[in-house]
Design a binder for these strands. Structure first.
Length: 619
DNA sequence: GAGCACACCCACACACCAC
DNA sequence: GGTGGTGTGTGGGTGTGCT
C-alpha cells in the first residue's frame, strides 16, 4: 500500500498560524469505522517517524494496525500537505510530536488533541560551556526566544558532525542497562551497527548519562556475545508477530543484514565482467551500424579491453535486478568510485590471478576519501604497475620484476620441450638417468636429433619433409608496416580473456592434428587470430611451436600498451631467443662478423642454426 | 596495569541534487 | 536519461583518559 496513491488536501492537516496542527476534521473516537488514525471518509492519517528512532518499528505497527500510514518521506511544509512528525525525542527544531500521542489515542479509542504532545524544550549540551559541565539550553522548535547560535549548536550535536569537546563523565554500565541495550538490539536487529540508533538509545531514561558512542561501544565490546537471539523482522526491519501478537525469537544465524553492505570481491568481479560484457555487445552493435569511432585511416577503432568503460542507467538497473544485494545507486556508485579508478579488466585480471594462486581475492578499496585524495594520479600508478601485475606468475606471486616474463618463457620451454622430446625420442630421455626433463639444453639436443618427430606436439610445424611441403603453399611472411589491430585480430579475440587466449594457443599448438595449415588457421581464427598474424607468428618463431607460444604471450603482454600507430614497431621483438625479425634475419644473411656478434648476443646457437635451415626452406 | 567508557577517525555505501 | 558533485551516516575500527 502506498501513501503516494492517496490525494491529500492541505486542509486535511494544515499548519495554523501558530504552527500547530489543526485536526478539526480528523475522524475520532468510536465513530471511526476505518480505524483510529483516519480522516473523514476513512482516509488514513500520515505519520513520519525518523528511521533512526529506536521506537520506530514498534509505533509503525501500532499506527498501521489502527488505520494510519507510516511514510518514508519526511514532512515538508512547502508541499502544502502535512505529514505528522513523531519521535521519541525532539529533533532539529522541527515541529515534532511525542509518540505517546499514539498510545493515548489507542487507549482513548480516538485521536487525542495533538497539540498536547508537541515537543517544546529540548535539553542539549552547550559547547560554549567553559567548565565542561552540561548546560541546558532552552530552545523550541521555532527558535523563538532562543539564540540562533544555540539553535545551531543543538542542530550540530544531533547531526553528529560536530562533537562536543572531550568530557569524561564515566558511568559504569549495570546489568539493568546491559539488558536494556540487548533488548533494544533484539527489537531492532537491523540497526545493531548504526551510530544514530545508539545516539537515540542514549536519550532513553534508562541509559541517560551515557553517550551513543559509549553504548555502541558497550554493545560491540561486551554485549554482542550475549545477544543469543533477536526478534524476527521483515525486510524493512518491522517486527513480525506471532498469531497471539508476541514477538518471535530468531536465532543469530538468521540475523538480518544491516543497513549497508560492503561490496565483496565477487561482487566487484561480477560488476566488472558484466560491464565489459555489456560494453562488448554494445561495441559490436555499433560496429554493425557504423557508429564506432574511426582512426586516422578511417577504420573503426578496435574494442579496447582496458579502456575506461561507461554504462547507462539501464546497466545499473540491470545490476540491481540481477544482483539485488545492492541498489541501483550502490552499483552505480561502486562503478564511479572504484571500477573506473581501478579498471574493469585490470580487476578481473587481478581477481583471476588471486584465484589461480589459491589466494582470496580482495575487493577494490582505497579509492575514496582522504587517502584517495592523497594519491592523485593513482590511476597512472596503476597503469605503470599493470605490467608487473599482468606478468606475475601463479608460481611466483611476488613476480613483478622483469624476470617474470622470462620465467614464464622458461616454463613454457620446459614443458613444451619436454613434450617435444618425449614425442621425438622417448628413449633418450629415459636413458638419461638423473637428467631433468627441464634441462633445456639437453632437450634441445634431443629435439635437434629428432628430425622425424611427429608433428603437433612440440618442435616445429615445419620440420618434416611432408609438412614442409604442406606449408610451402602457405604464404609465410612478416607483417607489413602500417598494420592495424584489425588486420591481426578478429572479434573473437576480444571475447576471451588474455589468460585464456594463452591457454587456448597452447592447446592448439599441442594438438597433434594441427600439422595441416588449414586446421591451424581455422583454430587460430576461432580465438581471434587472423591468418596474416598466424603467418607472422610462424615467420617470427621459425615455425617452432614453443616460440610461437612465447610470441603470443609477449604479444598479450604488450598489447594493452601499444597504440595503433606503434603496433608494427611494438611487434618487432628483438630481445628474445627464438623470436626473429627481418632485421635479425639480415644480420644472419649478411654473414659479417659484426652482425653475427650482435645476433649471438640475442639468439642461441640452436636458434641460429634452426633459422638458417628455415630461411633456406621458406625464404 | 588492566579494563572500561568514551571520543574520534576513516573508508565508503547509499542517496540526493544540479546541470 | 546521463553524469558529476557532494552530503549523510554506517561499519569498523583505534586512541585516550578515567576508574
Amino acid at each position: 500500500m502506498s501513501f503516494h496513491t492517496i490525494e491529500y488536501s492541505a486542509g486535511m492537516v494544515s499548519p495554523n498560524s501558530n504552527n500547530q496542527l489543526a485536526l478539526g476534521n480528523v475522524q475520532s473516537g468510536a465513530a471511526a469505522s476505518h480505524g483510529i488514525f483516519t480522516y473523514d471518509g476513512g482516509i488514513p492519517m500520515l505519520f513520519f517517524v525518523p528511521f533512526n528512532d529506536p521506537n520506530r518499528y514498534e509505533y509503525k505497527q501500532k499506527i498501521i494496525s489502527h488505520g494510519g500510514i507510516i511514510t518514508d518521506t519526511e514532512p515538508n511544509e512547502s508541499t502544502g500537505n502535512r505529514i505528522i512528525l513523531l519521535s521519541s525525542f525532539n529533533i532539529r527544531g522541527q515541529l515534532c510530536f511525542k509518540l505517546s500521542f499514539i498510545d493515548d489515542s489507542i487507549k482513548n479509542n480516538g485521536v487525542c488533541d495533538l497539540s498536547n504532545y508537541k515537543y517544546q524544550i529540548p535539553e542539549v549540551y552547550d559547547p560554549s560551556s567553559v567548565s565542561g559541565q552540561n548546560k541546558v539550553i532552552k530552545i523550541n522548535s521555532e527558535g523563538d526566544g532562543a539564540d540562533q547560535n544555540d539553535a545551531a549548536a543543538f542542530s550540530n550535536v544531533l547531526s553528529r558532525n560536530v562533537r562536543p569537546p572531550p568530557m569524561r563523565t564515566s558511568r559504569r554500565f549495570t546489568d539493568l542497562k546491559d539488558e536494556y541495550i540487548l533488548k533494544q538490539i533484539r527489537l531492532n536487529p537491523r540497526l545493531r551497527n548504526s551510530h544514530k540508533f545508539f545516539d537515540g538509545l542514549a536519550l532513553h531514561d534508562v541509559l541517560k548519562g551515557h553517550t551513543g558512542n559509549s553504548i555502541r561501544s558497550r554493545y560491540r565490546n561486551h554485549l554482542e556475545s550475549r545477544l543469543a537471539y533477536v526478534y524476527k523482522t521483515d525486510e524493512d526491519g518491522v517486527l513480525i508477530k506471532s498469531a497471539d501478537g508476541k514477538n518471535i525469537r530468531d536465532s543469530l544465524e538468521n540475523l538480518p543484514k544491516t543497513l549497508k553492505n560492503r561490496f565483496t570481491a565477487l561482487e566487484d568481479f561480477n560488476l566488472c565482467t558484466e560491464l565489459i560484457e555489456y560494453s562488448r555487445l554494445k561495441y559490436y552493435e555499433d560496429l554493425e551500424s557504423g557508429a564506432v569511432d574511426k582512426d586516422e585511416d578511417g577504420k573503426p577503432k578496435p574494442f579496447d579491453l582496458y579502456q575506461e568503460f561507461t554504462a547507462p542507467v539501464s546497466f545499473f538497473a540491470m545490476m540491481a535486478k540481477n544482483y539485488p544485494s545492492h541498489s541501483y545507486h550502490s552499483w552505480r556508485d561502486r562503478y564511479r568510485k572504484f571500477v573506473r579508478q581501478y579498471g574493469a579488466q585490470k580487476y578481473i585480471d587481478d581477481y583471476n590471478r588471486s584465484i589461480q594462486n589459491g589466494e582470496t581475492p580482495e575487493q577494490m578499496k582505497n579509492f575514496t576519501g582522504k587517502k584517495a585524495g592523497l594519491t592523485r594520479g593513482f590511476k597512472e600508478l596503476i597503469g605503470s604497475s599493470y605490467n608487473d601485475n599482468y606478468r606475475a606468475l601463479p608460481s611466483n606471486e611476488n613476480a613483478g620484476d622483469d624476470g617474470a616474463i622470462d620465467e614464464k618463457i622458461k616454463q613454457i620451454r620446459s614443458s613444451n620441450y619436454a613434450n617435444a622430446a618425449e614425442n621425438a625420442g622417448e628413449h633418450e630421455i629415459q636413458e638419461g638417468e638423473g637428467e631433468s626433463n627441464n634441462d633445456i639444453e639437453s632437450v634441445i639436443e634431443s629435439q635437434s636429433q629428432a628430425e622425424s618427430q611427429p608433428q603437433g606436439k612440440g618442435g616445429s610445424l615445419l620440420d618434416s619433409q611432408s609438412t614442409s611441403q604442406m606449408w610451402s603453399d602457405f604464404d609465410i611472411k612478416y607483417l607489413p608496416e602500417g598494420i592495424t589491430l584489425e588486420h591481426l585480430l578478429n572479434k573473437n579475440f576480444f571475447k576471451i580473456s588474455p589468460n585464456e587466449i594463452s591457454t587456448r594457443v597452447e592447446t592448439i599448438l599441442n594438438d597433434i592434428e594441427l600439422a595441416a595449415p588449414a586446421v591451424l588457421l581455422k583454430s587460430f581464427n576461432e580465438i581471434g587470430i587472423n591468418d596474416v598474424f598466424t603467418a607472422h607468428l610462424i615467420m617470427a618463431a621459425t615455425g617452432d611451436i614453443v616460440n610461437m607460444q612465447v610470441f603470443i604471450d609477449q604479444f598479450l603482454h604488450l598489447i594493452p600498451h601499444l597504440s595503433e600507430d606503434k603496433l608494427y614497431d611494438g611487434l618487432q621483438i628483438e630481445d628474445t631467443d627464438g623470436i626473429w625479425t627481418s632485421k635479425l634475419d639480415n644480420y644472419l644473411l649478411s654473414g659479417s662478423k659484426q652482425d653475427m656478434k650482435k645476433l649471438q648476443a640475442i639468439q642461441s646457437p640452436q636458434s641460429i642454426e634452426a633459422r638458417r635451415h628455415f630461411l633456406e626452406k621458406f625464404s
